[in-house]
Design a protein around this nucleic acid. Structure first.
Lengths: 215, 215
DNA sequence: CCCTACCTACGTAGTTACACGTACGAAACC
DNA sequence: GGTTTCGTACGTGTAACTACGTAGGTAGGG
């Protein structure tokens, strides 16, 4: 019978034992190795070729994220779950960027990790609720900020139309042809827009608008 | 004893009953009204002034999101939870933008809604796991796409430097002064950048780079 | 009826960007 | 030792943008 091979890296034996116990409950998984620092984790990953690597985020030598980055550099398809004490936004974002498949905050229940393991081995991502929360907050902050700024700078419908075309890279002449107005009118709108937004050329204008529009 | 007043709007009596039952289990809440369409929901909200409005997303007359928008327009501090069959990305995003405090997918367990009610009345937001998932996916897609594209279009360090300055709205002359190089050199870089990225002017260039950089 | 906001349009003059090239030295890579 | 990549630099001509104005018509609200 095939069992998924799991490698655990954490500098606290107690945590490793906890994970081992959890994993042992299911016949589908087997822990084939342990590491207590980042350097070891990388070495063992290469010799043991596990199906899943569970990494504590804080370890001596190399921390979990650094290990993840190195492992994923050589093996982009590696399955990695990060265990962390913190649901720090910076950590979560960076883990996402690095490409780890799971992020579990330690104070969640054990079943959280269990579920994460199952999901990741099925090819899905699993970021625990708290980890998602931080991204969610980031996102909703962005959305509300967007609204606030939209209210600060009020553009007329025509101006919105114009600025979209500017952002698409059209010249005044092209916009004029498209809107059946004089290129001079387009330039007036452009000038008004720049004045409203408080910038001094079209480049900054587009940049500003891009920022307000969605980011 | 003070009880939080709740107004329920859903076109299915069964759902309303379900919610009522759920709410009745706690002495802290009381359902003070029901509506079976969007128009009614708004009217009742204004006459009853509930502490919390639970809105089904699909209703005759006005749907839940439209109701939410109207109510929040007049009363920006209103507490609103949206109930939905779908974890559609579009819905979730729009609800966030509108400013609802909670979004619960109906096939989640009842305790999900219970928790949402509690959270929202405590002043927190609550978007159920599935709803967060869509935002999460959106975000992680963005992150991985960013990485992919970064690899597709490889810029030299100097080019990165130049493009940042372009994005700040500097003219070629200003960049030249800043970098102690000829303005013609700056223009060469600019031209190379436009060629690499595949656009035809600085505006599009900045727009493109903005997109790749974070969104 | 007045006032404000909006869309429209123009003039002049100066600045900047863009397209099309070419070219050379340094460093890195094969 | 050749090739590629990168950063540097220039010329010329056209197109586009920007700054500074002015100004008429229309729709809506007070």
């Amino acid at each position: 019978m095939h069992r998924y091979k799991i490698l655990i890296a954490d500098d606290h034996a107690m945590v490793r034992d906890g994970v081992k116990n959890l994993v042992r409950q299911s016949k589908e998984y087997v822990v084939i190795g342990e590491a207590s620092n980042g350097r070891q984790a990388i070495e063992q990953f290469e010799t043991l070729a596990p199906d899943l690597l569970i990494l504590d985020i804080s370890m001596p030598e190399l921390n979990g994220m650094e290990v993840a980055r190195e492992v994923l550099n050589k093996n982009p398809l590696a399955n990695i779950i990060i265990l962390s004490m913190y649901d720090d936004e910076e950590y979560v974002s960076r883990c996402l960027e690095i490409g780890v498949k799971g992020y579990v905050v330690k104070n969640e229940s054990g079943s959280e990790l269990e579920y994460a393991i199952r999901s990741v081995l099925q090819g899905k991502n699993y970021f625990s609720r708290q980890a998602q929360d931080v991204i969610f907050k980031k996102y909703s902050h962005a959305v509300t900020k967007k609204k606030q700024r939209e209210e600060l700078i009020r553009l007329t419908p025509r101006e919105v139309e114009i600025i979209r075309l500017i952002a698409e890279g059209l010249t005044s002449q092209q916009m004029a042809d498209k809107l059946f107005i004089s290129p001079r009118t387009v330039e007036t709108h452009r000038a008004n827009l720049m004045k409203k937004v408080g910038v001094k050329n079209a480049i900054e204008l587009v940049k500003k608008v891009q920022q307000l529009e969605l980011i």
